[in-house]
Design a protein around this nucleic acid. Structure first.
Lengths: 167, 167
DNA sequence: CTGAATTTTCAAAATATTCTGAAACATTTT
DNA sequence: AAAATGTTTCAGAATATTTTGAAAATTCAG
């Protein structure tokens, strides 16, 4: 396989995989493209490489910046804005994990707490209902704690220690 | 808040949250409904409670069964099929985690391995490219190992030990 | 300032996903 | 064996999401 072919495959596949994670396909493809590019790219170059519209590029670049996955760069003597991707993949993974934690775990805990506060355990039915809510709350809390710890921990330390626990 | 109101809220919210995780809204609502129901329910009851079509109910019941989240039950003297949800929330969480691991992590590792095998490190550019691929591979491998361990471990043991590691 | 270059916005179009409902299929009862 | 009851399928309709592209807004050199 030629290098260019492999790069294209990577960009394309990364987009497909992303949809499996509830992340926009184009956003991921732009990210992949920037990950592989040593040079910073501008909107026109991205449009051309991925054959997508200017609006689409703009929208997804801003989304990627809000995730902290890419950075804007102003090049000497250039009017255009250039973009580079964060290349430390562990950092990338942490940023994505944090985002997913906020989007997927925190709302669960919030809603369960809200329900818990509104229902009193003053009948058998209420108690049964609260049991389910409480259990979900606990799972959510565990997921949240573990996630926070993983995100904060240094990856080498974590990998070795975590794996020890799991043996 | 009345119990029924709270239950409705839970069912409704569970559906909304699920879409954040790339899971079908109706599937999650059916799951939530069965989680809260001590009695097994049949297709007609689910149709009525959620005001959705028979086809939709059937499709999502089958999907829930394939996830292992619900079970079919044949009631004495009844022609209809009844369904119950797995009530052990930790088990539910493990089933969902396993599913997501298969869907989200494994394909990443596969694709990276495929690319690694096809590109030889015989030039600077190739090596740079392989560096990115290798890093992603490592992150994927770590995520996979951690996930597998979490899924296999006994939840109480895990919760306490894992939290110790994280302190 | 002015106006050319660049970025951003957003309504409409394209695409993707989910849902419906009626017909086909399957099973059980009489 | 045919009627009754229940389940599954799937083409088309409804919804939701993503993308386009042209107009508006912004930026900046002269």
């Amino acid at each position: 396989m030629e290098l260019q072919e492999a790069k294209d495959k990577f960009v394309h596949t990364w987009g497909t995989l992303a949809t499996q994670w509830g992340i926009n396909r184009t956003m991921s493809q732009i990210h992949a493209l920037l990950l592989l590019s040593e040079k910073a790219l501008n909107a026109d170059q991205i449009m051309e490489q991925l054959t997508i519209s200017r609006g689409n590029v703009n929208m997804n670049l801003r989304e990627l910046m809000s995730w902290g996955l890419i950075n804007k760069q102003l090049l000497q003597g250039e009017r255009k804005e250039y973009f580079t991707a964060e290349k430390d993949i562990w950092k990338v993974a942490r940023l994505i994990a944090k985002r997913r934690q906020r989007r997927e775990i925190e709302p669960v805990i919030e809603v369960m707490d809200e329900i818990k506060a509104a229902i009193k355990p003053d009948s058998v039915e209420n108690k049964e209902f609260l049991k389910v809510i409480n259990d979900i709350s606990k799972v959510g809390g565990f997921a949240d704690t573990a996630m926070t710890a993983i995100i904060k921990a240094d990856e080498n330390w974590l990998a070795s220690n975590l794996l020890k626990v799991f043996k």
